[in-house]
Computed example of a mutant assay.
Amino acid sequence: MPFRPEDQQDRPGYFFILSGPSGVGKNTLLGIVLQGLSGVYYMPSATTRPMRPGESQLNPYVFVSKDEFEEMIERGQFLEWKKIHTNDYYGTHLPSIRYAIENGYDIITDMDVLGCADAVAAFPEHICTIFIMPPSLDELSNRLYSRDADQRNIQKRLERVELEMKYQDKYDFVVVNDNLDESAQQLREIIQEVRTSKNFKGKREVPQ
């Protein structure tokens, strides 16, 4: 990703990670927050899932074929990767993270709870973790049914919610996405607070 020299910090870069159940609104929140937040770069994950209406390359993912993804696995290009939900791959590009942290650039992405555990283990001094909570499980279920006609996919996502929710106490911050504008403002304030700290220390407990 192209980094601007004026965004370089006089400290190592911070890596902000958002996690939360599928359908909780992580990408929507990120889109709102990044519009009014300069100097923080969105790092899209790579995925093999099909592009949805309104999406494009790099927004919100780097869309690749399964052959391309598996080749990247063999080359050790991922910090973490998973095959989830509909047997599609998702992964986080390791060289991009290293470059950003080593050169003082702040980056942000969304990641599942197990991937986040891998990231914290790899970069414990440079990561800020934020868990996005739904206002209720009923509301989360309604959101999923409104965006996906395949009930099997929805059921797989709902079955994973229980696992994901167990990790919330391991995160540095928790944001309940009830009111979108208020949640986006809370998320923005968290990011700004951490960025102004040269020595941010979160809970630093690696999720197990």
Rank of each mutant, 00 (worst) to 15 (best):
D148F: 01
P5S: 12
K26A: 03
D7F: 12
H93P: 05
S56E: 14
L94S: 08
V176H: 03
Y14R: 04
Q185L: 13
Q9N: 13
Q8S: 10
E162G: 11
G20F: 01
N179V: 13
V33K: 03
D150Y: 04
L30G: 03
L94G: 03
D178I: 11
D150R: 05
M133G: 13
A121K: 07
T196K: 13
K170P: 03
F15R: 00
P44C: 14
M165G: 07
Y171P: 01
D106G: 07
D169R: 06
F78I: 06
V175T: 07
L29N: 04
V62P: 05
L140T: 00
K201C: 15
E125P: 04
L94V: 04
Y90C: 03
Q168L: 15
D150F: 04
A119H: 01
F63N: 10
L187H: 07
N27L: 12
P95M: 10
Y105D: 03
K166I: 12
V175S: 07
D150C: 03
F173N: 04
M51G: 02
F63I: 10
P124T: 01
N177K: 06
I17P: 04
V206C: 03
M43R: 02
N142R: 15
R188N: 12
R49C: 09
F63W: 12
P53I: 01
N103Q: 07
E74M: 10
G54W: 07
A122E: 07
F3D: 06
R147L: 01
E55G: 02
F78C: 08
P12T: 06
T86F: 01
M133C: 13
P21G: 02
E55Q: 05
K166R: 14
K203E: 07
I107Y: 02
Y145I: 12
S146E: 08
L187M: 10
T129M: 06
G25A: 09
Q192A: 14
F78V: 08
I97P: 00
P134Q: 03
